[in-house]
Design a protein around this nucleic acid. Structure first.
Lengths: 226, 226
DNA sequence: GTCTATATGGTGATAGAC
DNA sequence: GTCTATCACCATATAGAC
């Protein structure tokens, strides 16, 4: 889109500055929130004057939209690509593992970018929100289909609601943005633990009140507590 | 603390107004973010004039702090209480299930309150953040101890890092704040699915490449993708 | 307690020189 | 392209009447 000379040449001076501004915007928005971020601070971080920003983004809202767009497809492209290179012989379990790891790497490497679409969601102008929502939905659909296929292949339990499971899985992984620190566990270790828990759970096999079922069964559980 | 006539009488007119302001603040902060929220709007929602707010909170920052404090201990009290009434005979698996359900109910019923401590975290003034952090840590410690006890009792796998598992579990449940809608699955259903996945995983028992282990074993997994 | 001013400062955005 | 001004507005917070 913008800068319709997409095919040829390397970055012009304008493109370089635009990227610099965008990077600064990502940082400031993620630290201060949409309303809390000021054009003056974005400019300062970018090394420009406040007025100059308007050469690249004609409003704060459009700047926000650009910031979000950068992050949107990053993760989904990473994951789709990781799945695509899997051999057809790969089990769904393996595919899911690869997808989990790719998703985790995707969100954590895009850093502040991904933080924005989570923390700032509620404060984002409606029109920006709408566009982001559409791209997000398509990606979530991919995960749903992956789980459904795995279920039909007999690899995962049928007593779990697929949509709910998908939502829980994705949101659980996304939540790593809240607590991941570069000086802690490695992304690989985290992805590994995620996969183990999602795949097999935390309980020791054969333990106590009922293992994973193929068909709906244990139904009168829960309902404790209020 | 504040209003040191805690023990006696019912709410004075001032207390009622204070609560009204606090509730309005919760709503507006959660919708607009810390910086995006205006005292004028809080006042409007509370049915007061902007200036009147300062009778109860001498600054926007202190108002924010009050809002956060309301939500902090709600969830942890709910969970601790739910665990306390469990019979000593209850397995750790049962305790964990009860804790999951209580935590989920806690965050979802406190609604916008809990949203604040997640969405607005990055925008919160440092001093407020610090206090919130301490209370949060104590609660997370409780979960850690629960998992450690379960592990020592031989109920859960020892090949999972306990801290990481705790973090994943809690953040996964908290993430329900992002996607829960009152017109969708019931809280009970969601808690049930959470527990099933966390306990047993999504894979059909006995399936493919290795079930849950008691001891560290399968170690050369993963490392695919980059 | 709650109001109506209002002081004071910061914000997004624009205009026009270079 | 980037700057320096500057406008018009809205924010938090205060003062003092009721």
């Amino acid at each position: 889109m913008a800068r319709n000379r997409v095919v040829k040449r390397k970055q012009s001076k304008a493109d370089i500055s635009r990227d610099k501004v965008l990077a600064a915007a990502v940082q400031v928005f993620s630290e201060k929130g949409y309303a809390g971020a000021t054009m003056r601070e974005v400019a300062r971080v970018a090394g420009l004057s406040a007025g100059s920003l308007y050469y690249y983004f004609s409003s704060k809202e459009l700047m926000m939209e650009a910031v979000i767009n950068v992050s949107i497809n990053n993760v989904s492209k990473t994951v789709l690509n990781a799945i695509a290179v899997q051999p057809p012989s790969a089990s769904y379990s393996e595919k899911i593992k690869v997808a989990i790891k790719a998703h985790l790497q995707g969100i954590l490497s895009s850093g502040a970018n991904a933080v924005i679409s989570r923390y700032l969601w509620v404060q984002i102008p409606d029109e920006v929100k709408r566009k982001h929502f559409i791209a997000q939905s398509a990606y979530e659909e991919f995960w749903l289909n992956l789980l459904i296929a795995a279920q039909e292949a007999g690899e995962i339990r049928t007593d779990l609601d697929v949509r709910l499971t998908r939502t829980i899985m994705l949101s659980a992984i996304n939540a790593a943005l809240d607590w991941y620190r570069p000086d802690g566990k490695s992304v690989d270790e985290i992805a590994e633990t995620f996969f183990k828990i999602i795949k097999e759970g935390i309980v020791i096999s054969g333990e106590s009140d009922g293992p994973a079922l193929t068909a709906p069964e244990a139904k009168k559980e829960a309902t404790a507590l209020k």
